[in-house]
Design a protein around this nucleic acid. Structure first.
Lengths: 298, 298
DNA sequence: CTAAATTAATACTTTATATATATTAATTAT
DNA sequence: ATAATTAATATATATAAAGTATTAATTTAG
């Protein structure tokens, strides 16, 4: 028995006429008659009562028709499901992200993705860059959005944004009134607030390095876990900070942001995934970030 | 796509090895590889990740495997159901019967049938013979158990029992003491109780005829609807009656039954069905009545 | 480190069978 | 009575499934 037999049976059962059924199936009548007979022989059951002039379904045929309809429907559904799975239209994806993207880039990405792939369940996990690399390998996340692209065989990186540092100053700070970019050296005696090296190694090292290159070592007044906390402390007048440009949108009432003259360091945001991951959901996600989100952001 | 493809896919997915799968399918490996590739091409989806040395299911393949298993199972079930339907092992049947068979032959038949075909739903309808013939034509019953076999093109009859009349007498009746068969003529002056011609035409006519052949016209004291009522009235001493032999088992405390000398008339019980009815349930029922019930009863 | 074994894929041949054509027997409608 | 329509039959053709032999790549064992 083959699907062909079932499809032929369905058509004949619907038409109750071998000639018409054959026409609908775009084949000749004799092979159709033969195939139906084969089906009946294999099942050991007469599915049609035929006279020389008339064809009707037997009781068995009626029951079989119902079941066959169900089966053919299920099969079509199964194929469609698999195809959608293959196109990355259904499924699940877990996305890790660092705290700093939670205010700007991440909501944009997720909004776009949800709109285009409403049937994929997205799970979001806020993690540090290091935790994300671990999570990728353990497959608890499939996509990482982080700030520490490192060379690796098993993990692919793609930079999705580069942004310069800006200086965050308390509203009342003397430098707050200046409008032109400020040389970094002028912060040599200022108290720095910064996220701890453990929480954001890349950022920490870049801040230290950029100061070092300008000829001074920054006075670290306070370390925090979250970038947002850094800004809160700046707002409270505890000190100043170097933060990624995209942070400018936050706490604008209490914090003044100033560009750095000849800023050589950029905060890099990258998307990462396991190289050998062939999941369509993952790749449509990456593609969406690449094709539509980056142009919008830059 | 054909069922073959699904079955091959299932086997390869289970074995994760083309060679073993081919062996299990009793075919060579190359055609199997080809068929799987065809399936993948038609679906537009890679179901397996193959290396030169290893085969594993893709995510899509895993999902498809589940669905395919379900579909193949459903198909097997459908075929089995149809076959059982064809063997008369499942389904429904409505059986009409006359009141007189309700005490002896009918319970026996139904008990046997239920035992052999527990999955057929049997509906029982007590009807007169005439009503049953009508019901057969209207297809509200498929089997009739009645007492009036008539010649008919569209309805088949098969006699399942012939039983002589016996005389039913009140316990105190003078004839009750006789042990040898009694001549019918001796009832010439007795008051007869009988089921009305409308309720049981065949029986009524036979009683009248048998008396007529012995040279007298019976005195009809009382007509009833049911044969059982006849016996009740006999028990009450209202009169005597001629009843089918199988009635002897009823009211034995109050009614005495005596054989008739040279009894020429028999109550005939027959099973009837629409000639063109090809339903297996109906024919297995008839076969069961013919093959097993009749020997037990006679 | 080489040789044997095992894997899936490829090229080609054989076989099976699905389909098509032509025709027939039976039935119905005009 | 005749034409039209039905499903079935006989036969031929075309498709494609399965088989055979071989290969390339990889792993395992000596």
């Amino acid at each position: 028995m083959e699907l062909r037999h079932l499809k032929y049976f369905k058509t004949v059962a619907e038409e109750l006429h071998f000639g018409r059924a054959a026409r609908r199936l775009k084949m000749a009548q004799p092979p159709l008659s033969l195939q139906i007979r084969q089906l009946e022989e294999e099942m050991g059951v007469l599915l049609f009562h035929r006279t020389k002039r008339n064809v009707e379904l037997s009781e068995e045929g009626k029951v079989f028709l119902e079941k066959v309809n169900q089966i053919l429907e299920n099969l079509d559904e199964a194929i469609e499901t698999v195809r959608r799975l293959n196109r990355g239209e259904v499924g699940e994806i877990a996305v890790g992200f660092i705290a700093t993207v939670a205010y700007g880039i991440l909501p944009t990405i997720i909004k776009h993705y949800r709109h285009k792939y409403p049937e994929v369940h997205v799970e979001l996990k806020q993690l540090t860059s290091a935790e994300q690399l671990k999570a990728l390998k353990e497959e608890t996340i499939q996509i990482a959005i982080l700030s520490e692209p490192t060379d690796s065989e098993e993990i692919n990186f793609e930079v999705i944004r580069k942004e310069p540092f800006v200086i965050a100053l308390p509203k009342e700070h003397p430098l707050a009134t200046e409008t032109s970019p400020i040389e970094l050296i002028r912060l040599a005696n200022e108290p720095f607030i910064i996220t701890g090296r453990k929480a954001n190694q890349n950022h920490y090292d870049m801040v230290i390095n950029s100061c070092y290159q300008e000829g001074f070592s920054p006075i670290i007044k306070q370390e925090t876990e979250e970038m947002f906390t850094v800004l809160s402390l700046v707002a409270a007048g505890i000190g100043i900070a170097l933060v990624p440009s995209s942070m400018q949108l936050l706490l604008q009432n209490d914090v003044v942001y100033r560009n750095i003259k000849d800023c050589k360091f950029n905060t890099v945001t990258a998307i990462a995934w396991i190289s050998e991951n062939r999941s369509p959901v993952v790749h449509t996600f990456i593609k969406l970030v690449r094709d539509s989100v980056i142009p919008i952001l830059s």
